[in-house]
Design a binder for these strands. Structure first.
Length: 412
DNA sequence: TCTGGGGTCCTAGGACCC
DNA sequence: TCTGGGGTCCTAGGACCC
């Protein structure tokens, strides 16, 4: 544990860079990394926020996650491009292939970030030389750039990769934290978000250094587990391992902002059932079953309400999940216009070691399972929208003949 | 001015049991 | 009559991340 050799590789402006590279490959003449440009959602569907920005857009004050509308006001010539997640997954995999040349100990932390543990993999090479080699190889072979953070643990490596960008290697060893990390505002520390910053400010904690030197017991009293974690992090302490195991999902859900607010419970229910169908489909694709269904509603004043319920058995069956969701919704009040409807399934486990509930109706389950499979196969062959569960269910479920028109969902 | 979607983890309070 | 403490499970909501 003493002297680990950890790298954090972070793609610079990932979505924007990947789209830029793709456009160039397809004959587009402008490199959108060099102009005021962003990757954004769909304004008409009220999902118009900035997902990634070019350095030029950044100079105009455009920030990630703000409404495109704001961004355009700050930067009138802003060019907006739509994200392409199939492309992003592909580019992410290309990057991973390069990293694998150096070690098997890689943790894919998100689509555009990975940790690498090179302890024992280096031979007589120096860690920092490998960092530069990775950075240069990625640029040469893939056409986009990365930052690489170098340290003894994941937290410091991640903090390091966040220093000056793009296309840079930075070290942040324990004996450097006082100079390089402590002067930074506390908001820069990984894990300290915008709700915590004002609380720390009230305690006169403004920099990471202030946090590091603050009395740990007092932090624990005020913030619980989080207090201990923050104090450790500010002091560069992090024992967490680079985890190579492929994580199975713990929950699966969709939430959809509606293009117009929903007023009646019937409207909400219709949308909820569509979402349930897609969530159940994804659950089965993972070969998992769920025990809990949770429904979230967001009002037009941005208040979130969620309710959850046990299904009573472990299942991936669309009908059961819809039944449970309807029962949850029936207990919720719709007092204000609803802007967003979300549904997630929770307490997941693997399909093949499912415990049968005491009163399980096994025969019925099998029939339902068969129906789901027929629907799933059709979806896989002809596209998600080719068939919906509702149409297969017959008369009593007439209501759920959903007109599913999400054009963004194209199965290959 | 209007504010996404996918997740994970933590906490606090209530119900229930011994 | 009113009285305990510990443990577990469940739920709603909050905070954070990319």
């Amino acid at each position: 544990m003493e002297d680990r050799k950890i790298l954090h590789v972070d793609v610079n402006n990932a979505f924007l860079s990947w789209t830029a590279v793709d456009l160039l490959r397809n004959g587009y003449e402008i490199d959108i990394r060099t102009i005021p440009a962003i990757i954004g959602g769909d304004e008409e569907r009220r999902s118009g926020i900035v997902l990634a920005k070019s350095p030029v857009a950044k100079k105009f004050g455009v920030v990630t996650a703000e409404p495109i509308y704001f961004a355009k006001q700050k930067c009138p010539n802003l060019q907006v491009f739509q994200g392409n997640f199939t492309l992003y997954r592909k580019e992410s995999n290309n990057l991973y292939e390069i990293l694998k040349r150096y070690t098997d100990k890689i943790e894919r932390f998100s689509i555009d970030e990975s940790f690498m543990d090179l302890t024992g993999y280096l031979g007589d090479k120096k860690l920092i030389d490998i960092a530069y080699e990775i950075k240069d190889t990625v640029e040469r072979e893939l056409g986009f750039t990365v930052n690489v953070g170098v340290s003894q643990n994941k937290l410091l490596a991640k903090m390091a990769s966040d220093f000056e960008k793009p296309n840079k290697v930075h070290t942040l060893y324990l004996d450097e934290i006082e100079d390089k990390m402590w002067p930074l505002p506390v908001s820069e520390l990984f894990g300290v978000g915008k709700k915590t910053v004002p609380k720390l400010f009230n305690m006169r904690i403004k920099t990471i250094g202030d946090l590091a030197k603050y009395d740990e017991e007092k932090l624990i009293k005020r913030f619980g587990k989080m207090g201990k974690w923050m104090h450790d992090a500010a002091n560069g302490i992090d024992d967490s391992e680079v985890s190579t195991k492929i994580e199975r999902p713990k929950s699966i859900g969709n939430q959809v902002t509606q293009s117009k607010d929903l007023i009646t419970k019937d409207q909400v229910e219709d949308v909820m059932c569509q979402i349930a169908e897609e969530v159940a489909f994804r659950l089965r694709r993972e070969k998992m079953v769920a025990e809990v269904v949770a429904v979230t509603l967001r009002t037009n004043t941005f208040k979130d309400y969620s309710h959850q319920k046990k299904i009573g058995t472990q299942t991936s069956n669309t009908k059961k999940i819809i039944e449970c969701a309807r029962s949850i919704l029936s207990e919720m009040e719709i007092k204000e216009p609803i802007r967003l409807v979300g549904l997630r399934v929770d307490n997941l486990s693997e399909e093949n070691n499912t415990q049968l509930s005491f009163f399980s109706e096994i025969e019925n389950d099998e029939k339902l399972g068969k129906l789901d499979k027929v629907v799933d196969d059709l979806k896989s062959k002809f596209g998600y929208t080719s068939v919906t569960y509702g149409r297969m269910l017959g008369e009593q479920d007439e209501k759920y003949k959903i007109k599913y028109t999400n054009k963004n969902y194209k199965k290959k």
